[in-house]
Structures are given as C-alpha cells and as structure tokens.
Amino acid sequence: MAKTQLNVRVDEGTARAARERAVARGISVNRYIEELVRQDTGEAGRTFVDAAADFMKQYESVFAEEFAETRGTDPVEDRL
C-alpha cells in the first residue's frame, strides 16, 4: 500500500504521550497513529467481529455440545 505523508501539529504534551504509548507498545509513533485512526474508523473492530463470527460458525456444534453437557440437556433436542 502506498504511503502518504501527513504533517500535523500537536502540543508537546500530546506528542510526548504519543511517543510514550508507542514505545510502550514497541511500535513507531507513525504506526501508533495509524492504529488509532483505524480503530476510530471501525476497521479493526469490524475485522475482529467478522473473525469472531467465522470462528463461532466453524465451532458452533462444539460449543452446543459443550454447553448442553453443562446444562444437562441434549443439543439436538434444543434445536427442535
């Protein structure tokens, strides 16, 4: 993906906080800002929800069996 340079001005406290957070996460300030924007636009959240939905769909029968055993019911009967 091509990169575009943005120049922004922030107060020193904001710049310091961004640097500290990036260092704490082991990433560059640039990457930190990119992640914040992606989170704000919902891209990361949608990706997570889609992956979680796929996971649940793949393992639906396993979960149904496990929770039926916990409740003491038959998962097949529960679906009828």
Results as ranks from 00 to 15, higher is better:
R9E: 15
R25P: 06
R79I: 13
R46K: 08
D74C: 12
E34D: 07
E66L: 11
F67N: 05
F63Q: 02
A53E: 11
A18M: 15
A52T: 07
L6Q: 08
K57N: 00
L80D: 03
R21A: 15
P75Q: 08
G72H: 07
N30M: 09
G13H: 13
A15V: 02
S61L: 09
R38M: 02
E34G: 00
E60S: 08
S28W: 06
R38V: 02
Y32G: 09
R71P: 06
E66A: 12
R71V: 15
A44V: 13
D40K: 11
T70L: 12
R9A: 15
Y59V: 02
M1Y: 02
D40L: 07
A17L: 14
L36P: 01
E77S: 05
V49T: 10
T47G: 01
D50S: 07
A68E: 02
D74N: 15
R46V: 13
A22K: 09
T47D: 04
Y59H: 14
G72M: 12
D11Q: 13
A64H: 02
T70E: 04
V49R: 04
Y32L: 13
D11P: 10
A53D: 08
P75W: 05
D74H: 07
A51M: 07
R16S: 09
E69S: 15
L6V: 14
R38I: 04
E60N: 01
V37N: 00
Q5G: 03
V37A: 11
R25W: 05
V62E: 07
E35H: 04
E77G: 03
V76G: 06
N30F: 07
L80W: 06
V23C: 10
G45Q: 10
T70G: 01
I33K: 00
D40W: 09
I33V: 14
E43A: 15
A24K: 12
G72W: 06
T4I: 14
E77H: 02
D54Q: 12
I33S: 02
D50N: 04
P75T: 12
V23K: 13
G42N: 05
A44Q: 06
R9K: 15
D40E: 08
D50I: 08
R21C: 14
N7G: 04
L6R: 07
E35K: 05
A18W: 14
P75C: 07
